[in-house]
Amino acid sequence: MRLNNRIAYAFLAPYLLIFATFWLWPIISSFLISFQNTRVNPWRFAPSMNWGRLVGDPAFYNALYNTLIILVIQVPVMIALATVMAVFLNSPLLKARPLYRFAFFAPVVVGEVAYAAVFRLMFSADFGIINKIIGTVGLSPVSWFDNGTAAMALVIMAVTWRWAGYNAIIILAGLQSIPGDVYEAATLDRVGKVQQFFHITLPLLKPIILFCIVLSVIGTMQLFAEPFLITNRGGPGGATETLGLLLYRQGFTSLNFGYASAIAYTIAALAVAISLLNLFFGREAK
């Protein structure tokens, strides 16, 4: 090895060491652990135990179902919302743009526990402001934490609130990269604003939106904080239990690391598969 290289690696060593210890090794290790029976001491190699259990576990299918439902509803709604927010932020008519940009981005910065607490207060059945508002329009109050469907809706709303602004900022960057004179040309071509949005803006934003979708899919597949903190650890009765929660429960409540590892690998594989599908369907038509 040339001296130069050796010095370079010496400088990189602290990072590589940390990367190997806390990143690479856990990935390999958990793969190996997923093939072990971790409910006996010492652990034993039992390749079909965890994976076999996964295939037949109703709790797994419940978590998978919940996760996919959240994914299918939350991601499109959030991306659509984020696009609208980005267009709004990009409007030349908008005053105080930096303020809005900050406001939209702020939820990402707020601590999860704090925001979860606020959501719990707002959606509290008896004295939450949301039910008060619902009451004023003459509807009966919703028990957000006791009704499975309502709890799912709550999780979806919370996740959307937290990440829509973040995606809007990314999409805004894409919007700003579209030259203004393209729209001027379209205006002179007698193409209306709405048509401009659907025939110029959206097609040109497609790569960015796709990127946001992939990010969101990966995020939602790992969803944990909201159902854990807001809807009482996946409650009521597992109605909002996600794969992330199931993993947590198996790993850190039941200390069954083998099964938790199998679930972790399933989450990762699903995230990759869904993202690839997205990219495949979103690719440029040739």
Binding site: P179, D181, A185, L188, D189, P203
Partner: peptide, 17 residues
């Protein structure tokens, strides 16, 4: 759009997609 004019821009301003 109602002025019946057409403009050629310095940057061309073609629809890239």
């Amino acid at each position: 759009s109602e002025r019946h004019i057409a403009m050629v821009f310095q940057s061309y301003a073609l629809y890239p997609h």
